[in-house]
Design a protein around this nucleic acid. Structure first.
Lengths: 192, 192
DNA sequence: GTGATTACGTGATGTAGATCACTTTCGATA
DNA sequence: TATCGAAAGTGATCTACATCACGTAATCAC
């Protein structure tokens, strides 16, 4: 399916737009093809765009003390990703984003999102809905962090995204779970 | 200051409404006075309202296995709180909310929020902004959880909300940090 | 194909924090 | 003011996970 069609399906699950409205909306997106390993946003730089994933898998991650990497999000098709803190507050990125696999994405600038939100009330509704969804997911993950041990969180992650197991190297899954790669390795080898 | 005035100031930091528009907006809120210890939302029940805090302090918490309590949010004046998962999805509450101190709040029903959002475009913008802010805060807390040890998170919390130290019992601060009360106690007694 | 880089497994050891058990202090109410 | 329940401090012990160190397999680069 085409990028335009994928975005349209995604949007119209939530709001209704006429064909002209959607064309106008879509005109603000720019398609990009990224190669595996390519950097989309890098820490310390300006952030002007957010990204809607058409195909492939990206990761949004934070690097502390230039050493430890924590993955905030694996961005799969129909997911949105960016450093939203930097994007909204017009500050330098503290989060980096790169491609785990080759990927097709659509970019939308902060300016254009706000413009579209004020032009088309349903679009504003859509983005409110989307942000709310992200908020709830983040809160759920926070709770899981406090409440569950590593093994439970690992199984939770894989049951939600079974593709990840073959798609991304194990040390990245460890970085998402917030444990060392050694601990994760022992988890599924020791524990049967 | 009056509740209406506090809400107005809060809202108009983000959006502009005429006096009539704000009056219309405000007409959907209902004032409540709660006593210390009083329950606002309890797990397992329907959730119809969200709450805007005028004075006092509430806590939103999750109880796992009827035993361990994890605090998701201390809701201070001008903060919004509810079980948003249950509120948006019309499901039973998994999160409870009660009052740490006597409190004045304004309630707004899910239905009325959505009505106001569709009637007044700026109100939709406001709630998108607010949700976005919550999302960023939640993400920041998640990162802090993965990256910092308990002592650092404790100091981070107190530097952000110094009032909490005298306002809420220590075991609740421990429940927010996700550690046992014993560990928290040793933290500031052993470590100077 | 060869060498280098990256992924992954696994043992040994150290440590932050949980848990249990008990004591002390505080604050509300009779 | 005395009493009782909740909050808070503290010691002993246990455990999940980090860290370090090393080895092997897989993948990439030329």
């Amino acid at each position: 399916m085409e990028a335009k069609e994928i975005l349209k399906q995604h949007i119209t699950q939530i709001i209704t737009l006429t064909d002209e409205q959607f064309d106008h909306f879509y005109a603000h997106f720019k398609p990009h093809s990224f190669k595996k390993g390519q950097i989309v946003i890098s820490e310390g730089e300006r952030v002007e765009q957010e990204y809607f994933v058409i195909s492939g898998c990206l990761k949004a991650f934070y690097v502390s003390d230039e050493v430890k990497t924590y993955i905030l999000q694996f961005a799969m098709p129909t997911w949105w990703t960016s450093d939203y803190g930097a994007l909204y507050n017009q500050t330098k990125a503290t989060i980096s984003i790169d491609c785990i696999t080759d990927a097709e994405v659509l970019s939308l600038s902060n300016h254009d999102r706000e413009k579209l939100c004020s032009e088309l009330h349903p679009v504003e509704y859509f983005f409110r809905w989307r942000t709310n969804r992200g908020y709830l997911a983040s809160q759920k993950r926070l709770l899981s962090f406090m409440n569950n041990d590593t093994k439970a969180r690992y199984e939770e992650l894989l049951s939600q995204y079974p593709q990840l197991y073959n798609l991304v190297p194990k040390h990245l899954i460890a970085a998402y779970l917030g444990v060392s790669r050694e601990t994760l390795s022992r988890l599924y080898n020791t524990h049967r």
